[in-house]
């Protein structure tokens, strides 16, 4: 049985934090931040907004666009690396707020690669559970400290996608996922956010194009055949290098990092939602993300 992408959705907080606002605190200029990351501004959630409330807004936006009532969702998957620690994770709170009753709700606490892992799971699980609502939600602004190299990057927001077996929209063809705990200390939050930028970017710049090639080769396809790449919006310089490695025009990699910064797991689905709203939803499309763990993966839809 096939799985289809029925609709995307998103929520971004109202408060815009431009580089100029961060520059003084981080002892950098606004221009330096933009040159180093491609980011001009990001959104910060209000004090009364959290991972759950943003996830609910993105989930409802997605369901509305799909024309689907919350009650018909058969499985909820919530990706978040910045949800509350301990248990239960945010998924049950999101499910309760959406009125999903006893519908199963699964947490994927994988940080930046969480949405691609959740999308891959949804593709496999929709046959058993019916409509699968995937939401990725992050409040990164409460995790960042004063390290300019990380604090300049992150923003808050949530993205969502509805996957179902009912034909319509792009068809999910294949997914490839990888994890390597040898690098678990290179990007981590354990009370403070730590990033070994040299190692993270070196591996991301190689593993993202490699896993994209891997998922394409399994379908006897090449990057040249892909219409749009919807990637984790980590850093514009990284996205440019991924396009270069794939030997594809940089314009085929959708970017909105300049307005939202790096929203960790949410970024890929926020990007997909904006892409679907402003472009003809034609395939083939490749989703790809890389992040803490390291975890990385790619999903192909046609």
């Amino acid at each position: 049985m096939s799985a289809y992408l029925r609709a995307f959705g998103r929520y971004v907080p109202e408060r815009v934090v431009a580089n100029a606002e961060l520059a003084a605190r981080l002892d950098r200029t606004a221009e330096w931040i933009e040159n180093a990351s491609g980011i001009r501004e990001r959104r910060y959630a209000a004090a009364d907004e959290d991972v759950v409330s943003m996830a609910v807004r993105a989930g409802l936006d997605c369901l509305q666009r799909a024309g689907v009532e919350p009650g018909s969702v058969g499985l909820l998957i919530v990706a978040s690396g910045s949800g509350t620690s301990g248990f239960p994770g945010p998924a049950v709170s999101v499910a309760h707020a959406l009125g999903l009753g006893s519908t199963p709700a699964l947490d994927v606490p994988v940080a930046s690669a969480g949405s691609v892992f959740a999308l891959a799971l949804a593709m496999r699980l929709t046959e058993a559970h019916g409509k699968v609502l995937v939401i990725a939600s992050e409040k990164m602004s409460v995790l960042i400290g004063d390290d300019p190299n990380t604090a300049m990057l992150f923003g808050d927001g949530a993205g969502a996608v509805l996957v179902s077996t009912e034909p319509g929209g792009l068809r999910l063809v294949d997914a490839v996922l990888h994890s390597d705990g040898a690098y678990r200390d290179d990007l981590a939050f354990d009370g403070s956010l730590r990033m070994n930028g040299l190692n993270v970017i070196l591996h991301a710049s190689r593993k993202m194009p490699a896993v994209i090639d891997e998922v394409l080769q399994r379908s006897q396809m090449t990057a040249a055949q892909v219409g749009t790449f919807l990637l984790h919006q980590a850093n514009l310089n990284l996205l440019t290098r991924v396009a270069k490695s794939l030997n594809v025009d940089r314009e085929r990699v959708f970017t909105n990092i300049e307005r939202y910064g790096n929203t960790s797991s949410a970024s890929m689905l926020i990007a997909a939602s904006e892409w679907a709203e402003t472009n003809p939803v034609d395939g083939p499309v490749v989703f790809c993300a890389f992040g803490a763990g390291f975890h990385w993966g790619a999903v192909l839809a046609v």
Partner: peptide, 10 residues
């Protein structure tokens, strides 16, 4: 810097 390193490796 961190972005020059992957360029150098390539």
């Amino acid at each position: 810097d961190s972005f020059a390193l992957p360029d150098l490796v390539s």
